Amino acid sequence: MPSPAAPGPRNLLTDRPELYEARFPDPGRLAARWTEDVLRRHGAGPRVLDLGCGTGRDAAHLHAAGRTVTGADVSEAMLAYARAHHPGPRHVHADLRGFDLGQGEFDAVTCLDSALLYCHTNEQLDAFLASCRRALSPGGLLVAEMRNGAYFLGRTDLLEAPKVAGFAWGGTTYRSTTTLTVDRTAQLLRRTRRWTADDGSAPVEQHSAWRLVFPQELRHLLASHGFDVLELHDGPGPRTDPPWSEDGPPPGRATDADRLHLVARHPGPTTP
Rank of each mutant, 00 (worst) to 15 (best):
residue 172 T to C: 09
residue 90 R to V: 13
residue 158 L to V: 02
residue 106 F to L: 05
residue 169 W to C: 06
residue 184 R to F: 06
residue 207 H to Q: 14
residue 92 V to Y: 09
residue 224 S to T: 13
residue 218 L to S: 03
residue 144 A to R: 00
residue 110 T to Y: 01
residue 139 G to N: 15
residue 103 Q to R: 14
residue 213 V to K: 04
residue 193 R to Y: 02
residue 160 E to Q: 12
residue 158 L to C: 02
residue 140 G to A: 06
residue 196 T to G: 04
residue 186 A to K: 13
residue 183 D to G: 03
residue 178 T to N: 12
residue 189 L to G: 01
residue 177 T to I: 13
residue 99 F to P: 01
residue 123 E to C: 08
residue 213 V to Q: 02
residue 208 S to D: 15
residue 225 H to A: 10
residue 128 F to M: 05
residue 102 G to M: 12
residue 224 S to D: 14
residue 129 L to D: 00
residue 179 T to E: 15
residue 116 L to M: 12
residue 109 V to W: 02
residue 103 Q to E: 15
residue 204 V to W: 06
residue 167 F to V: 02
residue 135 A to L: 02
residue 180 L to M: 11
residue 222 L to D: 02
residue 158 L to S: 02
residue 154 G to M: 11
residue 151 Y to H: 10
residue 162 P to Q: 06
residue 168 A to Y: 07
residue 177 T to P: 04
residue 168 A to E: 15
residue 155 R to Y: 08
residue 114 S to T: 12
residue 215 P to Q: 12
residue 134 R to K: 15
residue 109 V to A: 06
residue 157 D to P: 03
residue 179 T to N: 12
residue 110 T to S: 01
residue 201 S to V: 08
residue 122 N to C: 08
residue 218 L to I: 09
residue 163 K to C: 08
residue 200 G to M: 08
residue 218 L to K: 07
residue 110 T to E: 00
residue 122 N to H: 15
residue 157 D to F: 12
residue 225 H to D: 05
residue 160 E to Y: 04
residue 91 H to M: 10
residue 151 Y to I: 01
residue 207 H to R: 15
residue 203 P to I: 10
residue 96 L to H: 12
residue 128 F to R: 01
residue 143 V to L: 04
residue 147 R to F: 14
residue 146 M to I: 00
residue 217 E to G: 08
residue 149 G to F: 10
residue 97 R to H: 10
residue 117 L to T: 03
residue 106 F to G: 00
residue 221 L to N: 07
residue 157 D to H: 11
residue 161 A to T: 10
residue 182 V to W: 08
residue 163 K to T: 14
residue 180 L to Q: 09
residue 159 L to D: 05
residue 144 A to T: 03
residue 190 R to E: 15
residue 98 G to R: 09
residue 185 T to C: 09
residue 219 R to Y: 09
residue 187 Q to C: 06
residue 131 S to F: 12
residue 169 W to K: 09
residue 118 Y to P: 00
residue 186 A to S: 06
residue 123 E to H: 12
residue 147 R to Y: 13
residue 209 A to D: 04
residue 126 D to V: 04
residue 207 H to Y: 14
residue 225 H to G: 01
residue 96 L to K: 03
residue 198 D to H: 09
residue 127 A to M: 12
residue 151 Y to E: 03
residue 151 Y to P: 00
residue 111 C to Q: 01
residue 109 V to N: 00
residue 92 V to I: 07
residue 107 D to E: 04
residue 196 T to E: 13
residue 133 R to I: 02
residue 195 W to K: 07
residue 169 W to A: 10
residue 106 F to Y: 14
residue 213 V to T: 08
residue 121 T to E: 05
residue 153 L to M: 07
residue 91 H to T: 10
residue 124 Q to T: 04
residue 197 A to I: 03
residue 209 A to S: 13
residue 143 V to F: 01
residue 196 T to D: 08
residue 166 G to T: 06
residue 174 Y to W: 13
residue 141 L to G: 01
residue 168 A to V: 12
residue 95 D to Y: 08
residue 159 L to I: 09
residue 171 G to W: 13
residue 165 A to D: 15
residue 173 T to R: 15
residue 112 L to K: 00
residue 181 T to D: 14
residue 131 S to C: 07
residue 104 G to A: 07
residue 96 L to Q: 04
residue 111 C to P: 00
residue 197 A to P: 07
residue 166 G to A: 14
residue 217 E to L: 04
residue 159 L to M: 11
residue 192 T to V: 14
residue 132 C to H: 00
